[in-house]
């Protein structure tokens, strides 16, 4: 299929038509959102932060293996849990996490999962979340 070249019109008419169509956007609603005051539309499946259920985690280290950046490292945590005899729990470095959601997909007990929260700004050296911090809300972690 041959594409059609635009027809040759009278000079300047096209320019003025373009100017009018640009100027007619003046009274349209802006597309941008004033972020901290107004929240943007958040789709249901939007995911960012990794969370953990300590009781469900069996310490299988699958999430550590599948993480492409090595953001997840297993850590020893003294805790009473009959299903997790090795007492290994993941901790996450959010500085390198790319939110590929592989860990959520591979977890056999859905202990590790991703949540809606995305306002996780921290200082540079505190991106490392311990297993206990992963179970908490973002607000509690910041305290």
């Amino acid at each position: 299929m041959e594409v059609k070249e635009p027809k040759k019109g009278i000079p300047l008419v096209g320019i003025i038509a373009g100017m009018i169509s640009v100027a007619s956007h003046l009274f349209k609603k802006p597309l941008t959102v004033q972020y901290p005051e107004q929240k943007p539309y958040e789709p249901e499946r939007f995911r960012f932060r990794i969370s953990l259920k300590l009781d469900d985690c069996v310490g299988c280290t699958l999430c550590e293996q599948v993480c492409p950046n090595g953001s997840i490292k297993m850590e020893k945590l003294e805790r009473e849990n009959p299903r997790n005899k090795r007492m290994l729990y993941p901790d996450v470095n959010f500085g390198t996490c790319t939110v590929c959601r592989n860990c959520e997909e591979i977890c056999p007990t859905t202990a590790i999962y991703l949540t809606h929260e995305f306002e996780t700004s921290r200082t540079r050296n505190s991106f490392l979340y311990s297993p206990v911090e992963l179970t908490m809300d973002e607000k509690e972690v910041k305290k």
Binding site: V22, A23, H25, L26, F27, K29, P30, L31, T32, Q34
Partner: peptide
């Protein structure tokens, strides 16, 4: 003016 024409604030 530029912002409003470009649908910004």
């Amino acid at each position: 003016y530029m912002a409003r024409v470009q649908q910004r604030i």
